[in-house]
Design a protein around this nucleic acid. Structure first.
Length: 276
DNA sequence: AAACGCCTCAACCGCATCCCT
DNA sequence: TAGGGATGCGGTTGAGGCGTT
């Protein structure tokens, strides 16, 4: 399945900034006939551009439903939250922000938002916070105790720590930066609901890490209840890991209510240490 | 006023994925 | 099922604006 030659490769097609006349031609054509068939569109619309260029111009600039102007504080908060979950999935993030394009959000991230967590000591692009790493680990110590309890192998546990770090960053954005809460403010999601997501959740084993909505001062970590029922020496972690390479997950044992495996620890000292 | 550097953002590039035949 | 065109997506580029020296 080779890459087809793009019409943009052809000679004599105009590139660079669009003129008012070109914009008018494109808008007028799309208003009349709609869009689609981008490859054929430029010729039909009388434009000396490649289809790709026309599509980009329309979706990123000329579309009538595009919201212009600065991003509100709430929009920025939403982007930060969604980015902490989805990473550089700009189209996914844009789908939550009506009137904003993926390109616009990507630009905003690269020019402004990316710097915010870094300035505060977090680097969202690396697996661990830069300056609060040790503090974070000390608060994650109870998780390490779970290693024996759950027969975790270390790499899988580290994935969990990574996930908790991402979740902690989300908390931090709310409590330290005190940005307004958006509809997309994450609670820490049960990981088994995120198997199909990309980094950092897709490959994670069987701990659930999530916040308690009526008690924002703590993070709850407990074993997946279904894994509590696993017996016969097969650890939940290895069971999960062996299934992670395939979409077909093994049938889970009957669910039991979590009990002694529930662990609660306080996050607030961590946040207060970060206050300027 | 000129030179320089930084920032912004529209536009491009190349690869991935979808979808039709 | 494979091939190939169409479209989507994310990374990158570069022109232009603006502030500083």
């Amino acid at each position: 399945m080779g890459r087809s030659p793009s019409s943009c490769d052809e000679i004599a097609l105009k590139r660079g900034p669009w003129t008012l006349e070109e914009d008018e031609k494109l808008v007028s054509f799309i208003t009349k006939y709609g869009y689609g068939r981008w490859r054929a569109l430029p010729q039909l619309a009388g434009l000396n551009r490649c289809g790709k260029s026309c599509r980009l111009r329309w979706t990123n600039y000329l579309r009538p439903d595009i919201k212009r102007g600065k991003f509100s504080q709430e929009e920025q908060q939403t982007i930060l939250n969604l980015h902490s979950i989805h990473g550089n999935k700009w189209s996914v993030i844009a789908s939550h922000l009506p009137g904003r394009t993926d390109n616009e959000i990507k630009n905003l991230w690269n020019t402004h938002l990316r710097k915010k967590p870094i300035q505060m000591g977090f680097d969202p692009m690396t697996p661990m916070p830069t300056i609060y790493k040790n503090t974070l680990y000390s608060h994650l110590h109870p998780l390490l105790n779970l290693q024996n309890l759950l027969h975790f192998d270390l790499p899988l546990l580290e994935h969990q720590l990574e996930a908790l770090q991402m979740a902690t960053l989300q908390e931090y954005l709310h409590h330290v930066l005190q940005l307004p809460i958006s509809p997309f403010t994450p609670t820490f999601r049960p990981l088994q609901h995120n198997r199909n997501m990309s980094f950092p959740f897709a490959h994670l084993p069987d701990l659930e890490v999530y916040g308690v909505s009526d008690d924002p001062t703590s993070t709850v970590v407990h074993r997946r209840p279904d894994m509590a029922a696993v017996s016969g020496g097969q650890s939940g972690a290895s069971m999960w890991a062996s299934s992670s390479s395939s979409n077909a997950l093994p049938p889970l044992p009957p669910v039991e209510a979590p009990s002694a495996d529930v662990l609660i620890f306080d996050d607030y000292s961590f946040f207060s240490e970060m206050d300027p």
